[in-house]
């Protein structure tokens, strides 16, 4: 009895670690969701002299329609009214209504899955859905499309030029997990953080969508797209 609370504290540590390791094992034991080769353009090494661990930051471009002056009306914005409705947002109110800003900005964001496609100019978000299977059936190529959890928020955007054009319903993606740890021995092959350094990283994404590094090719160039 004297050491009960101490034993329970130890048990909390054990159980928490047990859950984390079980999660990692399930992720790696299940069906692989994607196997991709990315480059220094898609996975950047951040310089940190105080941290000897190697963590890469996943870079992807948001929809290619944003300009410093607002959203270009002619650009490709797949996160439109129809897509946002399919993700569960309420889009009934006309964006020109005077209370529309309040109506859309106060809506609860949705937990979704986002598809990132590897193109010649880098990773770019191309679609979102509430279920992984739905998204994977739309993008079956596991070597060029990465699926990750994210959240989508709905908002109103003013279109080009200078935010004075028409207002339209749009959304934005956030909270995508972006850090990927590189363990030994792979971290030893990776060149130090340097804008000129080139490398390729082989990444596997497990059944629970947690990625891990399976190989590093220092000095390699190219897009990482399958030939």
């Amino acid at each position: 009895m004297k050491f009960t609370s101490l034993a329970v504290a130890g048990l909390v540590v054990l159980v928490a670690n047990g859950f984390a390791l079980l999660h990692a094992a399930r992720n790696r034991a299940g069906q692989v969701d994607a196997e991709m080769t990315l480059t220094q353009r898609d996975l950047t090494r951040m310089p940190d002299v105080e941290n000897s661990g190697v963590t890469l930051l996943l870079n992807f471009r948001d929809r290619p329609n944003y300009t410093p002056y607002g959203y270009h009306p002619d650009s490709e914005d797949w996160l439109d009214r129809a897509k946002l409705t399919s993700l569960g947002f309420y889009c009934s109110l006309d964006p020109s209504n005077e209370s529309a800003r309040d109506f859309y900005d106060r809506q609860v964001p949705r937990a979704v899955f986002v598809a990132l496609e590897l193109r010649t100019d880098g990773l770019i978000d191309v679609d979102a859905a509430t279920k992984v299977d739905t998204l994977r059936s739309r993008y079956p190529d596991r070597h060029s499309v990465l699926i990750l959890p994210a959240t989508v928020r709905i908002t109103l955007r003013n279109t080009y030029p200078n935010n004075r054009g028409t207002t339209r319903i749009s959304g934005y993606i956030e909270n995508t997990p972006r850090a990927i740890h590189v363990p030994r021995p792979f971290s030893a092959f990776l060149p130090p953080a340097n804008p000129a350094a080139t490398y390729r990283i082989h990444v596997t994404v497990g059944s629970l969508l947690d990625p891990w590094v399976t190989g590093v090719e220092p000095g390699a160039t190219g897009t990482g797209l399958p030939r």
Partner: peptide
Amino acid sequence: NLQVVGEIFNIAATENALLAWGLFGILL
């Protein structure tokens, strides 16, 4: 401990870690 294990296996962070840390703190 939980932060590093999460980082090693690239596990997406969850709120459950806050519960474990809170319980551990309460016990201490």
